[in-house]
């Protein structure tokens, strides 16, 4: 079970990378406007996803895991996308119809 090889160097690099990405995302959010709120949040989420991937691949060892564990590790992601996608699609489609404004 001990893989023998030390991954310490990779871990350290990933840690530094994560710090840099955190800095970038804060700087971008404070100083750069991409033109629309939606675009800004997309950029922030893209950076977050990059960070999350790094954590999963290196800190959580996914890079060195078997195919079985990798496939089950990502199994929730399609369902996450499904839930967000369809519910947002539905709500988007009926803006104006399903606006429960009681005032």
């Amino acid at each position: 079970m001990a893989e023998g090889k030390s991954h310490f160097k990779e871990l350290l690099l990933v840690f530094l990378g994560l710090l840099v990405l955190t800095g970038i995302t804060v700087y971008v959010a404070k100083n750069i406007n991409f033109g629309s709120l939606a675009l800004n949040i997309t950029v922030a989420l893209a950076i977050a996803t990059l960070k999350a991937t790094l954590v999963a691949l290196y800190f959580m060892h996914l890079k060195w895991e078997s195919k079985l564990i990798i496939s089950f590790a990502v199994i929730s992601i399609p369902f996450l996308i499904l839930a967000i996608g369809i519910m947002v699609w539905d709500i988007n489609n009926k803006i104006g119809l399903g606006n429960y404004n009681l005032q």
């Binding site: 369809i86 699609w89 539905d90 489609n93 009926k94 119809l97 399903g98």
Partner: peptide
């Protein structure tokens, strides 16, 4: 019947 949008 719960105000689901038609497309969906």
């Amino acid at each position: 019947t719960s105000s689901l949008s038609t497309t969906v």
